[in-house]
């Protein structure tokens, strides 16, 4: 059975014009797909195509306007209390905007402890130990636990959010551009960590990104979104065969591996110092 599935999801937002009249904007349309346990799926798409909106719907932060989200085959709105608890624990979202996803007055320790307190039976000592463990997993120094979000770098905060999501041992992690602030080296080690968790615990990932290079490296299957719809679905191995114009646009925008021997700018001949 699928771990999570989207069944014909649609989402419209109401925005307000100056005259106070509501303008309806269809952000998602006819979205259907499923993710199995232990699977890694990439969700590729251009900015504004609806990826983050879909991610919020999948974890129940927002309600779809039509269609439904199923968790182990049951609508997430029809889960009993205990099941809701399990759902909240097992499906974690790492937000695109890490500063916005954490309480700025909490220390890193408190931030990671919060889901542990609500969603696990760990006592204080157990929680503290788990915090140390996940910080290490995310390659963060232990002393970062006492710092506030404003005291850590952009990439460090992103790893704190990843650590928080992984702390509760989820079955599915939705990573919304969650590695975008990391340098390639750290990205690679974060991906290696996620792959290891997958091997050990069968964790599944929905990897939201617009970077084809990362999707190719990490996922086995790719969904391509454009203007609120899924326009193409294919195994990562077949990415070269992408047909849809939206997919090709993404592929053609991949940056060069090496600098081009281009005409150097104006005073390029000046020495560096």
């Amino acid at each position: 059975m699928s771990l999570i599935s989207a069944v014909d999801i649609g989402k419209t937002y109401q925005t307000h014009s100056l005259l106070g009249r509501g303008i309806r904007k269809q952000v998602l349309e006819n979205i259907s797909f499923a993710i199995k346990e232990g699977e890694t799926v990439a969700l590729l798409g251009r900015s504004g195509c609806g990826k983050s909106t879909l991610a919020r719907l999948l974890v129940g932060l927002e309600q779809p306007s039509s269609g439904k989200v199923l968790y182990r085959g049951r609508s997430i709105n029809a889960l009993r209390r205990r099941e809701t608890q399990g759902f909240r624990r097992n499906v974690q979202l790492v937000f695109q905007d890490s500063p916005g996803a954490v309480n700025g007055r909490f220390t890193v320790r408190a931030i990671i402890c919060e889901p542990l307190r609500h969603l696990t039976a760990l006592d204080q000592t157990g929680r503290e130990a788990r915090v140390r463990e996940v910080l290490e997993m995310a390659e963060l120094p232990a002393n970062i636990a006492d710092m506030l979000p404003s005291q850590v770098s952009g990439g460090q905060l992103q790893r704190v959010c990843l650590a928080r999501a992984l702390a509760v041992n989820p079955k599915l992690v939705i990573l919304d551009e969650a590695l975008s602030n990391l340098d390639t080296h750290l990205q690679a080690s974060a991906l290696a960590l996620l792959a290891k968790l997958q091997r050990d615990n069968g964790t599944a990932y929905l990897f939201v990104t617009h970077d084809l290079r990362l999707a190719r490296r990490f996922a086995s299957r790719c969904l391509v979104m454009d203007e609120g719809r899924i326009v193409e679905e294919l195994p990562t191995a077949a990415l070269e065969d992408m047909r849809h114009p939206a997919s090709r646009l993404l592929r053609d925008a991949v940056l060069p591996p090496m600098p081009a021997v281009r005409q150097l700018r104006g005073r390029a001949s000046l020495p560096l110092e």
């Binding site: 251009r46 900015s47 695109q96 952009g154 551009e177 975008s180 970077d211 993404l250 925008a253 940056l255």
Partner: peptide, 12 residues
Amino acid sequence: EPTTDLDLVVQL
């Protein structure tokens, strides 16, 4: 990091 949150097409 002026382009980290941009899709590749807009980034370009």
